[in-house]
C-alpha cells in the first residue's frame, strides 16, 4: 500500500461504511474502518457498526475511491440555489379552497 505521498506503508487501507437501518430506507454513511480487503471490511463493519441490530445491509467502499466536491468551493458551488425559492412548493400561494392540492 502507499499513502498520498507515495510512501509505502503497511497500514490496512481505509474503507467508508454505509448501513441500511431497515428495509425500505437508504444506506447511510456511518463511519470508516481499516481492512485488508473488501470481504474483511464487510465483516468488520458488521462487528463495529451493527452490534445492536442497527442495520440489515452494509456497503463498504475504499475511501480513496470516493470523489468529493471541493470544500473550499462550497459557497460558489451550492449558494446559487439559495435564491431559487420558486423551486419549492411553498413559494406558490393558492386560494384556500385548493391550497392543499
Amino acid at each position: 500500500m502507499s499513502d498520498e505521498k507515495g510512501n509505502v506503508t503497511n497500514e490496512w487501507p481505509l474503507w467508508e461504511v454505509f448501513v441500511r437501518p431497515k428495509a425500505g430506507l437508504d444506506h447511510k454513511h456511518c463511519g470508516s474502518l481499516h481492512a485488508a480487503d473488501a470481504a474483511m471490511a464487510v465483516q468488520m463493519a458488521r462487528e463495529v457498526y451493527t452490534r445492536r441490530q442497527e442495520g440489515t445491509s452494509v456497503w463498504v467502499v475504499r475511501s480513496m475511491d470516493i470523489t468529493a466536491s471541493d470544500p473550499g468551493e462550497k459557497d460558489m458551488y451550492f449558494d446559487p440555489m439559495e435564491d431559487k425559492v420558486y423551486r419549492h412548493p411553498t413559494f406558490y400561494e393558492l386560494p384556500e379552497a385548493v391550497n392543499h392540492m
Partner: peptide, 26 residues
Amino acid sequence: LAKIQDEGGHGLYLYAAAETLGVSRD
C-alpha cells in the same frame, strides 16, 4: 464481553475521527 467489545468499537470510532485530521492510525 459485550461491554469490552463496545470499548473496542469506541476506540475505533475515535481513531477514525482523529484520522480525518491527517494523522495515520499507525
